[in-house]
């Protein structure tokens, strides 16, 4: 094992055009996500907005944050955090969705007797 190669940090210089290209793509996607709000997709509007946000975030993480070339461990660490948040949100919604029957003020459902 060459001692020197192992001793120096692993460097990956991202090509200039790639960085600028990703930046341009992110701006385009911002336009798209604004544009989509003018189209009525029903409940899908939220899904589409979030999907676009996920795509944008993925590009930032892969290229700006170098995850594409980094040690996989760092990506695993980051994904674990996201998984944890998703778990938290899903279980909390699952529960609150059950007991939040109607929280509209002055319109609490009357109980028939």
């Amino acid at each position: 094992m060459e001692n020197h190669a192992a001793a120096e940090p692993h460097v990956h210089v991202v090509p200039l055009r790639l960085l600028l290209g990703v930046g341009a793509l992110l701006i385009v996607l911002t336009g798209v996500t604004v544009g989509v709000t003018y189209v009525d997709l029903g409940r899908l509007n939220v899904v589409v907005a979030l999907a676009i946000a996920v795509v944008k975030a993925t590009f930032v993480a892969l290229y700006f944050m170098h995850l594409r070339w980094d040690r996989p461990l760092n990506a695993v660490v980051f994904l674990t955090a996201l998984g944890c948040v998703v778990l938290f949100v899903l279980l909390a919604i699952l529960d609150t969705g059950q007991y939040h029957t109607d929280r509209i003020p002055d319109h609490a459902p009357a109980v028939h007797r």
């Binding site: 996500t33 604004v34 979030l50 676009i52």
Partner: peptide, 8 residues
């Protein structure tokens, strides 16, 4: 941004 500003 989409969660706060772009609600449909």
């Amino acid at each position: 941004f989409p969660l706060l500003y772009l609600i449909h």
